[in-house]
Simulated assay, not measured.
Amino acid sequence: MPTGLQILDTKDAPIPVSDAVREAAQQQGIGALIESFVLVTKVRSLTQNKDAEKVSVHAFEHGLVREAHASQPEVFRWDGIETVNQSVTHQYRNSAYYESMFYYKLRRRDGLELEIRGEYKDPKHTRFRDSALKSKRTHCAELGEVMSRRIASEQLADAKAALARGERLTFADVVISTEGVHSRKHGTVPWGQIRDVKVSNGVVQFQKEGKFLSLSSTPVGKIPNVILLLDLTDALREAS
């Protein structure tokens, strides 16, 4: 099954929810339906019909359900996600805001993946910040942020327990422990010396005494569970 999917803006057209999706959601206990989206594969073969290239994704309170043509629904519970990768980039033309692009990839503990990507107009960067005329793509981007935070909250307790046992946690090229942040270039930087951690210019930046250290060069979209990383760094800095 293709995993690279582009969100399709269906305007106000209702998206049907099959009995199979409702049954799968009920069996997995993922709560009430919030919103549904239609995705299309990036590449369509000449022999592939229009129904086959479409995938429905239904967002529930505690997870997502993916349903492709002639396939059984697949459930992605928030508490069953091993990693989530995400990125949102804002594009400008002649110094004026043009559009935003989002990307989310979920990976279950059994290795099954779901990718969602698309372009949208971010209300925070336009003149119509309070407009109710948001597209499906805008709703999907906003839901993606909520989804990432829900997944991070599910992972937080286990991650803190691992740190308390003395383990080091790795997020791409970022390695953390209760002692601090570890890197080949700077060694171990204690949490007491780190003033701030934030995402800026597409990377995670660590500020030490007024200057930013190059502890990570990995694009944020390639760092798994970056929201969890930020939550943990905040907790460790506060505890230092």
Rank of each mutant, 00 (worst) to 15 (best):
E113R: 04
I176C: 07
K160W: 09
K124A: 10
S131T: 07
V174E: 00
T126H: 07
V146Y: 11
A141E: 02
R165M: 00
F102Q: 06
A162D: 03
S153H: 13
L114G: 08
L106P: 03
S100G: 13
T170I: 11
I176W: 06
E99Q: 13
S131C: 04
T170N: 12
S153G: 01
A132C: 00
R149I: 12
A132R: 11
F102E: 08
R107M: 10
V146L: 12
E154T: 12
Y103H: 15
A141M: 07
D122W: 07
D130N: 14
G166M: 03
R129A: 11
Q155I: 01
A162R: 11
E154M: 09
K124N: 05
M101A: 00
M101Q: 14
A161D: 15
L106D: 05
I176F: 05
R129F: 05
L169H: 10
K160P: 02
H139N: 13
R137L: 09
R108P: 00
R168G: 06
S131H: 06
R165C: 06
H139Y: 12
F128K: 11
P123G: 03
P123W: 00
R149Q: 15
D122Q: 04
R108Y: 03
E99P: 01
K124F: 10
R117H: 09
F171Y: 14
K105E: 11
R129N: 10
Y103G: 10
S153I: 07
A172R: 06
A141P: 12
Y120A: 00
K136W: 07
K134C: 10
T126V: 10
K124R: 08
L114F: 08
P123A: 09
G144F: 08
R149T: 12
K121H: 01
V174G: 02
I116Y: 05
I176D: 01
S148M: 09
M101I: 15
E142Q: 12
L112I: 15
E113N: 04
R109E: 13
K134A: 11
D110C: 10
R107E: 14
H125F: 12
R127W: 09
R108N: 03
F171E: 09
K160F: 04
A132D: 10
E99K: 14
R165Y: 03
L169Q: 11
D173L: 11
E119L: 12
G118M: 05
D158N: 15
L112K: 12
L143T: 14
L156S: 09
H139G: 12
R165P: 07
E113Y: 04
D122A: 06
G118K: 11
R129S: 03
L114W: 02
Y104V: 11
L114P: 01
K121M: 07
M101H: 14
A172L: 04
G144C: 02
L106R: 05
P123N: 09
R117P: 00
R107V: 07
C140F: 05
V175Q: 07
D173A: 01
Y103W: 14
V146D: 14
Y120C: 03
G166F: 05
R127V: 06
D158Q: 15
C140D: 10
Y104D: 01
D158A: 15
K134V: 02
Y103A: 08
A141H: 08
L163Y: 08
S153F: 06
A164M: 13
A162I: 06
E154I: 00
I151S: 01
M147E: 12
V174A: 01
A141S: 05
